[in-house]
């Protein structure tokens, strides 16, 4: 009798690059997520997230790139490492957040919480410039970059900020002058090298 070939439905070959980047950074453990939600249950900022940590993991596995990258979650994750510490399957969830943030920044689109990446960028620029963080320069540059000055005026927060600033100053906690530049030359090399190490 003639054997008949049954044709099986072919899996659509979807672009897995997005997931591959995450797997590359933390290994295959992520495939073992059984959605127990332990990560989300212990997350201190879950109350303001639009995607809970266990949903972020699922979205990565399902190749839902846009959903993950456009989330508020990746920016308000406080990097407290509670999820990573407690996951029964040793999935480094906090690292997943890092990788997603890095991919998001490199994609060039606007982040859901634009102030956060602006803050990180300002932070790194301050290091590049002085070698160390000078708190006052960081603060003023960040306010300038993020339009934070008009925000605090609109919300009335400026009174609070000013009061706090004065108190800190009076207690000798505001260092006015930036540090003398230390190791800046060497750091510049690292910053140049960093440009060559992009994710995508």
């Amino acid at each position: 009798m003639e054997t008949k070939l049954i044709s099986l439905p072919v899996t659509v070959n979807r672009d897995t690059r997005f997931r591959d980047l995450v797997v590359e950074a933390l290994g295959e453990a992520i495939f073992s997520c059984y959605q127990c939600c332990k990560c989300s249950a212990g997350c201190p900022v879950a109350f303001v997230m639009d995607l809970l940590p266990h949903q972020v993991i699922r979205s990565v596995l399902l190749l839902q790139r846009e959903k993950a990258l456009s989330s508020r979650t990746i920016w308000i994750c406080a990097s407290c490492e509670t999820c990573t510490t407690r996951c029964p399957n040793e999935i480094d969830i906090a690292k997943v957040m890092d990788v997603l943030r890095q991919i998001q920044v490199e994609s060039g689109t606007e982040a859901k919480e634009p102030k956060v990446p602006i803050f990180h960028r300002t932070f790194l620029n301050t290091i590049k410039k002085f070698g160390r963080i000078h708190e006052l320069s960081l603060l003023t540059n960040f306010l300038r970059q993020s339009g934070g000055i008009s925000d605090t005026i609109k919300s009335g927060e400026w009174k609070n900020d000013l009061r706090l600033g004065i108190k800190m100053f009076l207690r000798g906690k505001l260092k006015l002058l930036p540090p003398s530049k230390k190791g800046v030359e060497e750091l510049r090399k690292l910053f140049d090298q960093a440009k060559e190490h992009k994710k995508s």
């Binding site: 990097s79 932070f123 690292l190």
Partner: peptide, 25 residues
């Protein structure tokens, strides 16, 4: 002598290479 910033949370959030190389230095 000559220490520089470790990169704190900023580096690991947006730049993997600096997150290791800044403290590594």
């Amino acid at each position: 002598p000559g220490w520089t910033c470790c990169g704190a949370s900023a580096a690991h959030c947006i730049n993997e290479f600096l997150s290791v190389s800044l403290p590594a230095r």
